[in-house]
Amino acid sequence: MHKDAEPHEDGGKREHVGAHMVSVFINGKRHVVPEHATIMRAIEYAGHQIIRGAGCREGFCGACGTIYRLPGDYKLHTGLACTTLVKEGMSLTQIPSVPMEKAVYDLETLTPDVSAILQVYPVTFRCVACGTCTKACPQGLPVMDYIQAAMRGDVAAVADMAFDCVACGLCALRCPAEIIQHEVGILSKRLTGRYLRKESRELDDRIAEVRSHKYDGEYRKLMAMDKAALSKLYYARDLEP
């Protein structure tokens, strides 16, 4: 942060950076941006148009994975561009998509235990428990712990620990064993939902109501509304305190 205007060298020219502005390097090029901006806002302030990887903006969709370094810090940091704030001297680049091979499987042929992990994602068992995946997670999830649970076949524990995963892929990007951790989490959540979930009488009743066409009239009424009417109805709804 620059409390006072300070000179900076830029290609042989001296430039003054005003108060509440910071210098960042986006894909190697220096830009001066507001100090309290998120990485996403800073990228747009610098004049770039984000056409993918913008997602829901602060809704944790996982589409704006970013890696960055800070001055004097040898570490490579990770974060989501929609929530990570810029810092003076930050050098960053976005990784909107992490290459991976996602398995294709049929839940009806799997069982909620270690055999499913072995069959679908056998690379999981290459984990060396280094903790890099946990350090990379922008959600602060215990990724290494749920991979260890997957190796034990505790599918329900994996589903619980991976519940808030946004599938940004930053864990897989940093993993030296090349595990696709978030896909292991997704598999476990699907197995838990299919085989291990607790029975809910309320859910069964609501499904029966939907199948009996109880809400068809209300649905048709909503579909016939224009945008203004829908917006008014939405903001006038009852909200829980």
Rank of each mutant, 00 (worst) to 15 (best):
V22A: 05
A149T: 01
I117N: 04
V158D: 05
A63Y: 04
E58T: 12
D205A: 13
D238T: 14
V155R: 05
E240W: 11
L76S: 04
K198A: 14
A150I: 03
P7Q: 10
T93M: 13
C137T: 05
L187K: 06
E35H: 07
A150R: 03
S212C: 02
R211S: 10
I179P: 08
M40N: 07
I43R: 08
L170W: 05
T124Q: 06
P71I: 09
K29P: 02
R201N: 07
D113G: 15
E183C: 10
E202T: 13
A177W: 00
T66Y: 04
G79E: 04
V166I: 15
I179E: 09
E218C: 06
C61E: 09
L230T: 06
D10H: 09
L170T: 06
I117H: 04
Q181P: 12
V128D: 07
K221P: 03
G62Q: 04
A136T: 02
I186S: 05
Y234I: 15
M161F: 01
L196P: 06
Y235H: 15
A116K: 09
V24S: 01
E101T: 14
Y146D: 03
K87Y: 02
G18Q: 11
D204S: 15
E58G: 08
D238A: 15
I50N: 06
I186Y: 00
A5M: 11
M100H: 11
V86W: 01
A167K: 10
G89E: 04
A81H: 03
L233G: 00
L110Y: 02
F25G: 07
H182Q: 14
L110K: 06
G55W: 06
I26N: 00
A224L: 08
L222Y: 01
E202C: 07
C168P: 06
E178K: 15
A229V: 10
S23M: 12
G185R: 03
Q181Y: 00
R220Q: 13
R194W: 01
I51L: 15
A156Y: 03
A149E: 12
Y68C: 09
V166Q: 10
R197C: 13
F163E: 15
I207T: 08
L173S: 10
E9N: 13
T192Y: 12
R14M: 13
T93E: 13
R126M: 13
P96K: 02
V33Q: 00
V166C: 11
K75V: 12
G53F: 01
K198P: 02
C137H: 01
D205Y: 01
H20P: 02
G18S: 11
V120K: 06
K135R: 12
V22F: 00
G11N: 12
R201C: 03
V17Y: 00
R197T: 12
L173Q: 11
G59A: 14
G217L: 14
F25E: 14
G18K: 10
A19H: 12
R237Y: 05
D216F: 04
M100G: 09
I117R: 06
P112D: 07
K3Q: 11
L80F: 07
G131H: 03
V104T: 12
P112M: 10
E35Q: 12
S212R: 11
L92Q: 00
E101K: 15
G59E: 14
E58P: 05
A157P: 00
A228K: 14
K13W: 02
R197G: 14
T111C: 01
V166Y: 02
I51P: 03
F125C: 10
K102N: 11
